[in-house]
């Protein structure tokens, strides 16, 4: 007994890490940060990393606004970056300080939500499209009509993720409008399309990977990563990109204005812009990253995945999700409430 005790104590001492040079507190979406990559970062710079999870942009925004959080890095979606910046919550960055800044894919450099990347660097990006069970429906899947004006065989087996901006955006583009439009004629059409379509929807729900895989659902508005996970369980599941337009989102790492460990946070941002490290993030979360050169480090099953590699013929239909002005947002909420009543 005593021997065991001594052994345990000895093991504890040996296993205890040497005191790290510094610390870094990351505030990120749950189940989104590659542990493998964090370990590599900790070893390379001798920094202790602590990760805290959140479940929505609104949660993160509210907690950071309240102050006293102690976080150094946050990872908001592009649509929330202007809000964080407007509230003065993010630290302005100097690109010259980052030696890997040039690795950012040109497409993700001058984005509308952060022109010139003054506040944030890419984390992961993905698309919102339509997931279809091809054993139920055999036609063209790059079509938003599968959800908004569904064919007979899909009726009653459709799920729409309850993300107001994504669904509204897709519907606005479906009737020929522009992102964040305030045009009443367009919005009236959007409302009519949505209200009529809802009769054919089974649910408006988030967790749906199992339901697609098991056949409870046959089509719906979905995220590409979730759709890919469903396909890995059921080969009939496919992901379509609506020709009329589909939203592209990006989550971005940024340093908080009141960060305690600014230097370490900068090291971290530089670190995730190294192609090999960005690929580690993708391997874990199953989404693409915005770092050029990371392709060769990507896992095999993602290099050719149709959910990750957008087919050439629908590449131009993508639009980047934006933060809509409050007065427009208000109308969207009204339509959305009417839809869910």
């Amino acid at each position: 007994m005593k021997k065991t005790f001594t052994a345990v104590v000895a093991a504890t001492f040996v296993a205890a890490p040497a005191f790290a040079e510094g610390t870094l507190n990351i505030y990120n979406w749950g189940n989104y940060t590659s542990p493998e990559m964090i370990e590599k970062f900790e070893k390379e710079y001798d920094i202790d990393v602590t990760i805290t999870d959140y479940d929505s942009n609104d949660t993160a925004l509210a907690k950071i606004k309240a102050g006293g959080h102690g976080y150094d890095i946050v990872v908001p979606s592009g649509t929330y970056i202007p809000i964080f910046v407007g509230e003065g919550l993010l630290m302005e960055l100097d690109p010259a300080e980052f030696k890997n800044f040039g690795n950012i894919d040109a497409r993700w450099m001058d984005v509308a939500f952060d022109p010139g990347r003054k506040y944030s660097v890419p984390w992961q990006w993905g698309t919102v499209g339509v997931t279809v069970n091809t054993s139920v429906y055999g036609g063209d899947i790059n079509d938003a009509a599968l959800v908004f004006d569904p064919p007979e065989e899909l009726k009653g087996k459709i799920n729409v993720v309850p993300e107001m901006n994504d669904v509204m955006g897709m519907a606005i583009h479906y009737v020929g409008g522009k992102t964040c439009t305030g045009d009443k004629d367009v919005l009236k059409k959007v409302r009519d399309v949505l209200v009529n379509a809802k009769k054919n929807w089974l649910s408006m729900d988030y967790g749906n990977i199992e339901k697609y895989a098991k056949g409870d659902l046959a089509a719906g508005v979905n995220w590409n990563g979730a759709s890919m996970r469903a396909r890995l369980q059921n080969k009939d599941i496919a992901f379509g990109y609506p020709k009329t337009g589909y939203p592209v989102w990006m989550d971005n790492a940024a340093i908080l204005a009141d960060a305690q460990n600014v230097e370490n946070a900068k090291l971290f941002l530089d670190f995730i812009m190294v192609p090999e490290n960005a690929a580690m993030l993708s391997k874990f979360a199953r989404y693409a990253n915005g770092i050029s050169g990371s392709e060769e480090f990507m896992p095999e099953d993602m290099k050719s995945a149709p959910e990750i590699v957008v087919p050439a013929e629908v590449k131009d239909a993508a639009y980047i999700a934006e933060t809509c002005p409050p007065e427009v947002s208000k109308i969207y909420t009204q339509i959305w409430t009417e839809l869910q009543k």
Binding site: S56, D58, N165, S329, T333, W336, T337
Partner: peptide, 9 residues
Amino acid sequence: ELQFGQGRN
């Protein structure tokens, strides 16, 4: 919940 979250009202 909708009003406090996505509705921002």
